[in-house]
Write a protein that binds this DNA or RNA. Sequence first.
RNA 1: UCCCCUGUAGCUCAGCUGGUAGAGCGGGUGGCUGUUAACCACCAAGUCGUUGGUUCGAGUCCAACCGGGGGAGCCA
Length: 470
Amino acid sequence: MSQNSNHEAVFRVRDVLALSPGGQPLSARGWVRTKRDSKHLVFFELNDGSCLSNVQVVFENPAPDVAAELARAQTGASVMVRGTLEESPAKGQSVEIHGTGLTVVGQSPAELYPLQKKRHSFEYLREIAHLRPRTNTFGAIARVRNQLSFAIHRFFQERQFLYLHTPIITASDAEGAGEMFRVTTLAPDAPPRNEHGAVDFGKDFFGRPAYLTVSGQLNAEIYACALERVYTFGPTFRAENSNTTRHLAEFWMIEPEVAFCDIDCNMDLAEEFLKYLLLDLLHGCGEDMAFFDSRVQPGLLENLQLVIDRSFQRISYSEAVEALSSSGRSFEYPVSWGVDLQSEHEKFLTEEVYRGPVIVTDYPKEIKAFYMKLNDDGKTVRGMDVLVPRLGEIIGGSEREANLETLEQRITESGLNREDYWWYLDLRRFGSVPHSGFGLGFERLIQYATGMQNIRDVIPFPRAVKSADF
RNA sequence: UCCCCUGUAGCUCAGCUGGUAGAGCGGGUGGCUGUUAACCACCAAGUCGUUGGUUCGAGUCCAACCGGGGGAGCCA
């Protein structure tokens, strides 16, 4: 609550709706969602983004000056309303504001305003991303994003993890986690050349090629190997030419990294983390989540509650392959030990075999990154993927290779240069410890939690291939 | 990058085997004393994605390009 210039109490809509009506004078402000009027009676719905619900404002036989203002208060207009809070005599809402005064702050010509008082497709709303937060769905997503962001920090802070800021710009060009965006100040039309005619990055800003980060993991390992528990939560960039409903060029990622923690400890953390976030979301954004359940993904709440209540199924890659090949199901991509699991396989495991989240571990080393700890069998590594129904992989992580010689060999096997990783190898050279971590794509978490189909609709301003508007 | 679908009024779409456009919603005007996907009446609104081709004639058939969507790969 604050005060307006007349020293009247100004409430946000969610607070208005929580008050018990008793004719008390108050003010509110926000945007007109819809208006309905008859000769002597005008209703409009006021929304200020504080919650999904609107508050209904009623004007009965308004004075001529107020009536003139009401005429200007079309869909989308910003207004300040003064009135009293009353019990509503009609169905649909328990309280309403009986308006006594109205100021249109900013008009919104109805014949031009792109948001009509009707349902719009997400594709259309994507084209007007500057206005879509004024809709129910995108307002709800903004609140869910906020709730989850804070829950992520709270989860780790309660467990004595340190929030670590890893760099956005990196000069290590061999992280191997996908195509990278180059960062440069060289002139694109006439870059300096060396004696071989190649671009001379020695003249570039950093004196060498630089890129936007694809992961903070290697940096996080540095701090985990000193402070034990750290996490990152920041933007991540991938220049992959992938056009899907679950890829972005710029997305936010959470990456905890923990020393003295093996793969089982890592799985425990991932499972506890996801359950904590979903439970917090159901409690903190109940109204928004009910909206997603009824309008976006029927059965969502029941589905999430099951995830919270039940243990995640934990199977090895070998067991997964066995389950798939003995299922009698024919897949587009045949299953055999050694090949990576495809989307159809992940879907089958989570949606039909186990009907819930599944953590798959111990993958063949050939299909996983060099830094994952090699098992005693010499063939598999301690990677883990958390798979969920509807979405597939939501978390990817591993216990990291802590043995110096083994890691050096894995780097070489992967076709990388040991010299590039001298500092990473130093962590194993001096006071090495078993340590683990994982990466959670924030937008994928939101997709999973809300049931939204397209990842471009769970981030305010999506950046993807051929798409960087707003 | 590959495969499939799609582009007609502000939005969502219909338009059969080629004969030069239609609905619902939205918008405007008027009516209505409790509406809430308001209701009733009337009105306005389209170089049918772009370019080229076939044809007497193309929204409709063909080609290329551009945009959008879905799936796959890659991954978070």
